[in-house]
Nucleic acid binder design. Structure first.
Lengths: 200, 200, 200, 200
DNA sequence: TATGAATGAGTCTTCATTCAT
DNA sequence: AATGAATGAAGACTCATTCAT
């Protein structure tokens, strides 16, 4: 007979410790960036000994692997189908202003670490499990196109690629400047101009 | 015909050493990534002493900054002042197709490691010595503007930021896809549409 | 009888290591002087790893600061509040005769190396953690002043500075003479005369 | 036949270079202190190559050896014999305020390097060649004593020692504080109080 | 389960000195 | 007489990891 919740007090404590380590790592990562994320650091913040760390995680990499894929998707289903391309433009910009907000929540340090070409969890091809937030305009555009509300100068795929590139470019700029840019302003302006050129 | 800077044998040797260091760094970068790029490593591969490294480069960052500073071909001084915005658009796209070429020369592996927000040698603010190469359209646009050949919808600074972001976005996409994208196609299309929107 | 902090075997071993480092540093200091005192050196002599050093001391300066911070015997809390200025004078001199004793324990060679303006672990401003030990008469004087037992011609701070300077001057003289001075005699006389002039 | 001034142009140039190196070293030493005095530094300031340095000086130590004993003595002969102890006190303080001035001219960095117990050129016993500036009150006091203008509570030798210690203590304090003390104020106050205690 | 002492290779950088030119 | 490229040991400090308790 397997007992579903046979958690003893000891196990609970153990889990709590593991969670403390986890949260400490997340906090440091966001605040100080990857290069300042050391075991010593983590343990200090978590209030835990080094030995304890290695009891719960087999290595630093082991811990980090837990962080993959934690971001929530951006829900675009609720968006009304646009009637004019002006509406479409505004809606798209809105979506990415939401993304800007999400980036701000994560913090520059975190995002700076995350946006590395090596981070294949960003790769829209490799990536399967969840809708890539940057791709989430796809369904929106598809609906608008099939509805006849919009016509594009280019292939949908190409357009999505362009938008993705512009958005990442914006994020990158924000990271490089260590947060000292007009993130929202840049995003709406550059996207806006591009979309103007697109619908034109 | 005598060359104005008559390079002595010693200077030649010195340059060769500098180049060896340069290539060694590139090799390691491509093979092992940014985090495994250490001065010791570089020197070992280059067959050069640590002291020699610091004779040629003032720091690790100094070395890295050369990779974008030494881009060949982005000489905009020689560009003719455009008469129509169509000419301007084509010229700008041309400049960045050159950049695409340069990226291809460096290789995806290298560029993937290089384009990390953590790589502060990319930061246009931190970097003081010379103007950011990606901004090298600046002088071109300035001339065109002062000549009355062009008028921009937005501030020059903002426009340059947008272009920089779009370019970086393209590079990032190319890296993420591990080179399996239409780099040139994406670059000209996305920049083209943006510029269409800009001059409108 | 049980001691309140029941030191485990591990803690004992740890303390022993710390002491080994401490003694090694002292030995090298005496033998080779301040400029030849390196972490590597210390660790080699102590038979300890670099990591271990930094486990016990946060930096080289941290280690050095212990030499004056751990002075035995300059406990002024236990000193009775003086009733006359003669008592005060005697008490102060007594305190610094204790310091003289401590210097003798450390040895001329050590102290000679230690008392360099370059040794910033001596700087009362740089050092933040704890009050400068030579200033430990402060609390004594403060109590005496607030008690009305004493009145000073000058600001307390200035007086403390004077005393500190005289004491250091004595130590310096002793060092310069390579120990061949009447350290105790000089100390009590010079301090005595100064204090005479002070209370006068 | 030996020609007294057979200096060729080459020799002149050589001497000029040597002097440039010398002055550069002095400048850096005073401005930045001993620990920032490197061959590279010196050569940069002197506008000379490393090789040239080693052509003129066999080593860094060789260069430094030239600096010993360059300070001028303080002339006290001209001081009028005091009639009251008040006059004597003022005169003595005046002498050391001159010394303070001299220290300020040399700069904190320089003096910090100089005032080390290991620097035996400070040792009044070892030292023979010139009058030790700190000792230069001796003749003054001797005259005043033999003239009957003054009587001391203690042996002249002891008194001189005290004064020397107090002065060095002041200098040390100034060095430790990196110049951020009221050097003149401390000097006159501490010496003044001591002398009050002495003549009482 | 948890502690924290210990390890030692690794980080970047500085520096006095040598030597071919 | 002068240059400057090259050396390599040494500097303080960091860090992931192991292990006895």
């Amino acid at each position: 007979m397997t007992q579903i919740p046979p958690i003893t007090k000891q196990q609970q404590k153990s889990l709590a410790t593991k969670r403390r380590i986890f949260h400490a790592a997340r906090e440091i990562f966001q605040r100080d960036g990857y290069e300042n994320l050391s075991i010593k650091n983590i343990c200090a913040v978590a209030g835990v000994s080094t030995g304890s760390f290695y009891h719960h995680f087999s290595s630093k990499d082991d811990l980090l692997s837990y962080y993959i894929e934690e971001q929530p998707g951006i829900v675009t289903n609720s968006l009304a189908i646009p009637k004019t391309w002006g509406e479409a433009k505004d809606a798209i910009i809105e979506i990415y202003l939401n993304y800007v907000k999400y980036c701000r929540e994560l913090g520059v340090a975190f995002v700076s670490n995350y946006y590395t070409p090596k981070n294949q969890s960003l790769n829209p091809v490799t990536r399967s499990k969840r809708p890539y937030p940057i791709l989430s305009v796809r369904s929106f555009l598809e609906k608008a196109l099939s509805d006849g509300a919009l016509t594009l100068k280019y292939d949908l795929e190409q357009t999505l690629t362009d938008i993705r590139m512009i958005v990442i470019g914006n994020v990158f700029e924000w990271c490089l400047m260590n947060g000292a840019t007009d993130f929202e302003g840049n995003m709406s302006r550059s996207l806006g101009i591009y979309l103007d050129g697109l619908f034109h």
